[in-house]
Every structure is written in structure tokens, then in C-alpha cells.
Design a protein around this nucleic acid. Structure first.
Length: 272
DNA sequence: CGTAGCGCCTGCCGGC
DNA sequence: TGCCGGCAGGCGCTAC
């Protein structure tokens, strides 16, 4: 479910409560996520360790400790919350870390497409992380990078910006929104974008992601509320989930098409 | 190599 | 009301 802005908001929401606190216990209630939770690694390494920092790479959260790093991906429906140590687990609470300061970090993930991993060496060298595109908000993600990656590509531009070796952190919602922002038809082929349009798309992606992160900042308190689900903040979408509604630029109807089994929303007039 | 399609799961919503 | 199909914000893996 969560895309980069939601993951970053989660990171910011939990870090101040956990950094420099000591893990006392690892609890695994349901090890069957996308991959089995490496119970032995976690239980042998994490208790008594201080959590040094929490970083993000793409949609992965990395919890750095001295013996290694815990890596969490939220998949389609995962969320992390801070709760008091005595709060009762609910349905789909699969994994948690307890801390010496009487708080706990709990992973809830109804669909179980998420992942909890362990990496004893450099977490950025983990096989699921090492080949990711540069961070979309960094200088390395620029027109040059995108135009090189799109060269000769016969897939639709939408599927290409959802490929995390080309752009990381952008899922279906922000792919739709970024393409609208850049006025690019999601169905055109990667190789059809010239350098100018690559630059426009890079700028649109950065703008959309930044705006969503900023918006998420106002809902940070949700991540330490013991009740309910995190209620991911919603950007006011311009095309996503708006089929049949008027385009905010030209008033013609937003259309929905299915592209590689993913809902794709766009304006036929404005996006060419 | 690049591309398309599958499948892992649960929950919810609309139609009958 | 209940059942069923379809859909949902991800993504690695496989087949071609």
C-alpha cells in the first residue's frame, strides 16, 4: 500500500520514539510474510542492542543496530505503530520489537505482502536493495539518469516509472499523479520521451513526492496513537480514482484504463 | 537482455 | 441477508 511518502512519514513518526533505546524482545506472531521472518537472526542479534538510527531506501525502512540491520518493507497493506508495551495485539499484528522504555513497535499487515529481513553486513548491499534506482529526491535522480534508462525501451512510460530500477518509491498512485503533472500520456513508450520530457517528468515526480511527504508531516501523530490504523494521509489526487470526473485543467473526463493489471487514470486531452 | 503475466494474501464493495 | 466476482496503494519470479 504505502509508497515512498508514506514510508518516509512512518520513518519520521517512529524514529524520535525509538532512537537510542534498547531492544528487549522480538515477538513474531505470524512468520509467513512475503518471505519467512528470519526468526533466529532477529532473536539472536537484536535483544540488548541499542537502535542506532532508522533510515529509508526507496520503500524499505532500515533499522540499524551494531550486529546488523533489520529491514522492513510494508508491501501493500503494512503499517508500523508505536504503542505502550502492555497494549494487546490485534488481528494481523505479525511482528514487534519491545523496548526498555516500555514502548513497542508493531507491524500490522493484513495482506502479508510485506517483509521483515535481516542483513548482517551493509544493508544497502542487500540483494533487494542494491539495484534500486537512486533516491528520487536526490540529485542523482535527474534528466540524465532517466533518459539513459528510457533509451530504447518499448514498455509504457507508466510501467517504466513503476520499475524500481528506473525510479524507486513511486507506486501506482504517484505514477498516475506524476504523469498528469508532467502532462505525459501513461501509454506512450519509454523510448518516445525526449530529453526535455524526461526532465519534465523528473521534476514532476520530485514535486509530487515532496508535496505528499509535506502533507504526511501533519499526520505524524497518527503513528504513535495506539488506536486504529495509520490512516495514510491523502494528497488531493488530480487523476487517481477520479474516472468520469472533470480534468482540473480542461474539464474533459478523466478516463480509467487497465495497464499491466494496474488501474491507470489520465486525461486524454492534457496528457499526450 | 526486456517485457508481460502470475501469484502471494485479506478485506471490502457492488450486484444479484 | 448471503454469496460471488472483482478490485486494492507491491514486487519478485518465471516464461517467452
Amino acid at each position: 500500500m504505502p509508497e515512498l511518502p508514506e514510508v518516509e512519514t512512518t520513518r519520521r513518526g517512529i524514529e524520535q520514539h525509538l532512537i537510542n533505546h534498547t531492544i528487549t524482545k522480538v515477538i513474531i506472531r505470524q512468520p509467513k510474510l512475503r518471505w519467512p521472518i528470519p526468526s533466529g537472526d532477529l532473536k539472536n542479534n537484536l535483544p540488548t542492542q541499542k537502535l542506532l538510527r532508522i533510515t529509508r531506501r526507496g520503500k524499505y525502512l532500515i533499522f540499524h543496530c551494531r550486529p546488523g540491520s533489520l529491514i522492513i518493507h510494508l508491501g501493500m497493506s503494512g503499517s508500523l505503530r508505536i504503542m505502550p508495551i502492555d497494549s494487546k495485539p490485534k488481528r494481523h499484528d505479525h511482528f514487534e520489537l519491545n523496548f526498555e522504555n516500555k514502548s513497542l513497535l508493531r507491524l500490522n499487515d493484513p495482506r502479508r505482502f510485506g517483509a521483515v529481513l535481516w542483513e548482517s553486513k551493509n544493508p544497502l548491499k542487500h540483494r533487494l536493495i542494491r539495484d534500486l534506482a537512486p533516491e528520487p529526491l536526490s540529485k542523482k535522480f535527474d534528466r540524465e539518469w532517466l533518459s539513459t534508462k528510457l533509451k530504447g525501451r518499448n514498455a509504457s512510460i507508466k510501467s517504466l516509472i513503476m520499475n524500481n530500477q528506473i525510479v524507486t518509491g513511486v507506486g501506482n498512485i504517484y505514477a498516475n499523479e506524476s504523469l498528469f503533472e508532467a502532462r505525459i500520456n501513461p501509454l506512450i513508450l519509454g523510448k518516445e520521451l525526449n530529453k526535455d520530457r524526461c526532465e519534465g517528468l523528473v521534476k514532476a515526480i520530485k514535486k509530487i513526492l515532496k508535496r505528499a511527504i509535506k502533507l504526511g508531516g501533519s499526520s505524524l501523530q497518527d503513528y504513535v496513537n495506539p488506536q486504529g490504523t495509520p490512516g495514510y494521509f491523502q494528497l488531493k489526487y488530480k487523476v487517481y480514482n477520479r474516472s468520469g470526473l472533470p480534468c482540473q485543467i480542461c474539464k474533459s473526463k478523466i478516463v480509467k484504463e487497465t495497464l499491466l493489471q494496474r488501474a491507470t487514470y489520465f486525461c486524454r486531452k492534457c496528457q499526450v
